[in-house]
């Protein structure tokens, strides 16, 4: 079942067409939303939430028509890109308030606020004013307020923006955990494609208001043919010449990693590579069937 389906949707800001005749079915699970700046990612999210009214077309979120935004927002959690909080509130009061705004009774909202804050890893800091929070804590509290009312679909706009490596890893683990086996689908929008790669199963690529590509990430990453990647300790020109002679043309080299055209099965290719390396007394430190990174796939899709 699709968590959201849009049919020939057009959204405009004045004369600027942000989404142009846009048709898509977003599937359950964790879906990444990719696209350059201004491609319409945030517009898509805001349309799903009913912030923007489409000028043409129709759509539904979790089986609810776009016009019934109140019901949609009941079922959807939204983590905006911008830093946001309610001024003058402590972390836990803020999250409980967000729960109350979603219709939870006061006591339930407070109980649930503590639960999701625990879950998002905000410890004692929850009793402090949100304005004193660091970037990482602000991202966590934004996630907490988005999931407090138990949504079925979570819309995350740049959840790892401004986080340091440790914070990024933790945030991605949180997103991955809530989106797998908890009955919660997630739509993540990010410029950091490795983040999408780590959390999502599927990706949508948007370009200039149009859907450019949609598919499972592992399919997007596939490369034509059967190239393999070989990692040596140090770059070696001799190896390069000899491996070509062995019938494996070099596609490209990055530092000491060679991407080679493979003649057949990986095992056969490995034997050729090892034989060549052995002649030169080099050791092969890595060998695997080549995949492109999501970033390469993305850059290819939009060009």
């Amino acid at each position: 079942m699709a968590v959201a389906s849009l049919h020939q949707l057009t959204v405009k800001y004045g004369d600027f067409v942000a989404l142009d005749d846009f048709t898509v079915d977003i599937s359950e699970g964790c879906v990444g939303l990719l696209g350059p700046n201004g491609a319409g990612k945030t517009t898509l999210i805001k349309t799903l939430l009913g912030f923007l009214t489409p000028t043409a077309g129709s759509g539904s979120v979790l089986g609810t028509d776009l016009s019934d935004w109140r019901r949609i927002r009941q079922l959807v959690g939204y983590m905006p890109e911008q830093d946001c909080h309610i001024p003058g509130m402590s972390g836990v009061a803020f999250v409980a308030y967000a729960g109350e705004l979603a219709g939870m009774p006061k006591e339930q909202a407070l109980r649930r606020a503590h639960e999701v804050l625990e879950y998002c890893g905000l410890g004692e800091a929850r009793y402090r004013n949100v304005e004193t929070y660091s970037t990482g804590m602000r991202q966590r509290i934004k996630l907490a307020q988005a999931i407090v009312h138990g949504p079925k679909l979570l819309l995350l706009d740049e959840p790892t923006n401004g986080l340091d490596p440790a914070g990024r890893v933790e945030m991605l683990e949180l997103v991955r955990e809530v989106s797998h086996g908890k009955g919660l689908s997630v739509l993540v929008c990010s410029h950091l494609l490795p983040d999408i790669e780590k959390t999502c199963d599927e990706a949508l690529v948007i370009l200039r208001g149009k859907l450019r590509e949609q598919g499972l990430i592992k399919n997007l990453k596939k490369v034509d043919g059967h190239p393999v990647e070989v990692e040596l300790g140090e770059p070696s020109p001799e190896f390069e010449t000899m491996i070509v002679q062995a019938g494996m043309p070099v596609i490209h080299r990055k530092l000491a990693t060679y991407r080679l055209e493979s003649p057949g099965s990986p095992q056969e290719a490995l034997h050729r590579v090892l034989a060549t390396a052995a002649k030169l007394d080099l050791s092969v430190r890595g060998f695997h069937v080549a995949e492109r990174s999501l970033e390469e796939a993305f850059l290819e899709a939009i060009n």
Binding site: L49, F51, W69, R70, R71, R73, Q74, G77, Y78, P80, Q82, D83, C84, H85, I86, P87, A98, L101, A102, G103, E131, Q145, A146, H149
Partner: peptide, 14 residues
């Protein structure tokens, strides 16, 4: 200033 409106309007609250 705090972008609080996004919190309000992200919830079923008009």
């Amino acid at each position: 200033r705090a972008n609080a409106l996004l919190v309000y309007l992200g919830k079923p609250c008009s």
